[in-house]
C-alpha cells in the first residue's frame, strides 16, 4: 500500500546542511494502523511531509498503491502537528470541513452528510457554525480530525495530534482514533513521541533512531484488537512492549552518541 524506500532528506540553506532523515525504508499494508515513535527532532514531521507529497526527498522514493508520490495524493489526508494554524480562522467549523469536499466537486447534499457524520464521529455535532477560535484546543484538534475523516481518505497521516491536550482528552482522542479506524476503512500512520501512546494505539510500532535517522526497530503489537485505557495499559504484554521499545530508544541514543 505505502512503500517508503531509502528515503533521505537534507535541508540545505546557505550556511548549513541538516540531514533530517538518513535512510528510511518501510512498508504499510492496506488497512493497517501503524505508529511511528522517535525522539523530538528526529525527522518525523519531515518524513510525513515527504509521504504527503508536500516536500521532495533528497533521495529515495515514496510509493502509494504502486504509484510514485510527486505531489499531494488525492486520497490522503494529513492532520498537522500545528492544528490551530491548520484550521482556517475565516471559515466556520463547517466551512473548514467542507472546503476540501467542494474542491472534490461533491454535490451539496453529500457534503452536508459528510460534515454531519464526521462531526458526529468526533462528538462535535453542536459546533458546526462556530469558528475554530471559539473552541478549546482539544475541540480544535477534533475538528481537524473531522475534516480529515470527511475527506474519506484511504490513507490518514497524523503528526503528533495530541501533543497539546491534557491527559484525559488525550485518552479520549486515542480511543476516538481506534474507533474511527475501525469504522472507516483506512490505513493510518500515526506519529508520536509518546511510547505508551504508540503501543496503545498501533498494530505495529516503527521506532526511529535519533538523528541521523534510520528505522531502528519494527515492533508488532500483539495486543487484543479491542483496547481499553484501563485494562490494556495494565496488561503485562503492554508493559513488556513499552519496556522493549523504551530500551530500544535508549540504546539508539547511546550508539549514536558513541558514533559521534
Amino acid at each position: 500500500m505505502l512503500e517508503v524506500t531509502g528515503l533521505q532528506k537534507i535541508y540545505r540553506d546557505r550556511e548549513r546542511e541538516v540531514e533530517a532523515v538518513r535512510d528510511l525504508t518501510f512498508q504499510l499494508t492496506e488497512g493497517e494502523l501503524a505508529c511511528l515513535v522517535g525522539p523530538s527532532g528526529c525527522g518525523k514531521t519531515t518524513l510525513l511531509k515527504c509521504i504527503a507529497g508536500l516536500m521532495e526527498p533528497t533521495s529515495g522514493t515514496v510509493e502509494l498503491a504502486g504509484r510514485s508520490v510527486t505531489g499531494p495524493p488525492p486520497d490522503m489526508a494529513v492532520v498537522f502537528q500545528e492544528y490551530g494554524r491548520s484550521l482556517f480562522p475565516w471559515l466556520t467549523v463547517q466551512g473548514n470541513i467542507e472546503l476540501p469536499l467542494k474542491e472534490k466537486k461533491l454535490p451539496k447534499k453529500r457534503r452536508g452528510e459528510l460534515v454531519a457524520e464526521s462531526l458526529e464521529a468526533v462528538g462535535l455535532s453542536g459546533s458546526a457554525r462556530a469558528y475554530p477560535w471559539q473552541l478549546s484546543g482539544g475541540m480544535q484538534q477534533r475538528v481537524a480530525i473531522a475534516r480529515a475523516i470527511a475527506y474519506e481518505p484511504r490513507v490518514l497521516l497524523m503528526d503528533e495530534p495530541f501533543a497539546a491536550v491534557d491527559a484525559q482528552t488525550r485518552a479520549d482522542l486515542e480511543d476516538l482514533i481506534r474507533d474511527l479506524w475501525n469504522r472507516f476503512d483506512m490505513t493510518v500512520l500515526f506519529v508520536t513521541h509518546d511510547i505508551d501512546e504508540a503501543v496503545y494505539l498501533g498494530q505495529r510500532v516503527l521506532v526511529l533512531s535519533s538523528s541521523p535517522t534510520v528505522v531502528q526497530d519494527d515492533v508488532s503489537i500483539n495486543l487484543p484488537s479491542v483496547r481499553d485505557q484501563l485494562t490494556t495499559r495494565s496488561d503485562a504484554r503492554f508493559t513488556e512492549l513499552r519496556t522493549r521499545i523504551y530500551s530500544e530508544i535508549q540504546n539508539a541514543k547511546h550508539t549514536s552518541a558513541a558514533a559521534k
Binding site: 511531509k49 499531494p72 489526508a77 498537522f80 500545528e82
Partner: peptide, 13 residues
Amino acid sequence: DPVAEQTARSYGL
C-alpha cells in the same frame, strides 16, 4: 501561514 498553505495543498486545492 505556511501550515495553512500546506493544509490546502494536502487537501488537493
